[in-house]
């Protein structure tokens, strides 16, 4: 997925976020996005590529993580570090997390999709249903009876 070795004379791709900001990105980084790859294959390689679904602050985050991801390719320690950053972001700024994930999904970046999805999965791990609902603002639609029954059956899991 990541850049090929001939990145010495890397081409620069110009992209424009939904709020009008213009980004210049190395081709190797931009091509992490399958959406951009497809658009370039189509024709608009010489023009500014519009990204109507991504705002500038989120696009910054995406590029930053693309770069980090490329760096840590064979580095287990860094991989771990990157994986553990999700918990922090989800706790402190879930709104940004969800925007980031939507952008990653829209731009179709496989490596970042795996990473951000793993963040959420790790975040859910070991939390009680009540806490999950509270943190993710999910409505509890079980009756108190149903809930008591689930709790009783899974006491080992909810301690």
């Amino acid at each position: 997925m990541a850049s090929t070795s001939n990145s010495t004379s890397s081409k620069i791709i110009t992209l424009r976020s939904s709020d009008g900001e213009v980004f210049e990105v190395e081709e190797s980084v931009a091509l992490e996005s399958n959406l951009i790859r497809r658009m370039m294959e189509d024709d608009c390689a010489n023009n500014i590529i519009p990204l109507p679904n991504v705002t500038a602050p989120i696009f910054y985050l995406v590029i930053e993580h693309c770069k980090k991801h490329a760096e840590m390719k064979d580095n287990k320690e860094k991989k771990k570090e990157l994986r553990s950053q999700g918990e922090e972001l989800l706790k402190s700024d879930p709104h940004t997390y969800s925007n980031l994930m939507e952008a990653v999904n829209y731009l179709d970046i496989k490596s970042l999709m795996d990473l951000t999805a793993q963040w959420l999965a790790d975040f859910l791990k070991g939390k009680s249903p009540r806490l999950i609902r509270e943190l993710l603002k999910i409505k509890n639609d079980f009756t108190p009876e149903e809930e008591a029954e689930i709790l009783e059956r899974n006491r080992w899991a909810f301690d």
Partner: peptide
């Protein structure tokens, strides 16, 4: 995307997730 995220959670957490909603 949400489904993909939930599918990455370890198996021992399934009953808990099934109790969310």
């Amino acid at each position: 995307v949400a489904k993909y995220c939930l599918a990455l959670v370890p198996r021992c957490d399934f009953p808990i997730m099934g109790a969310v909603c």
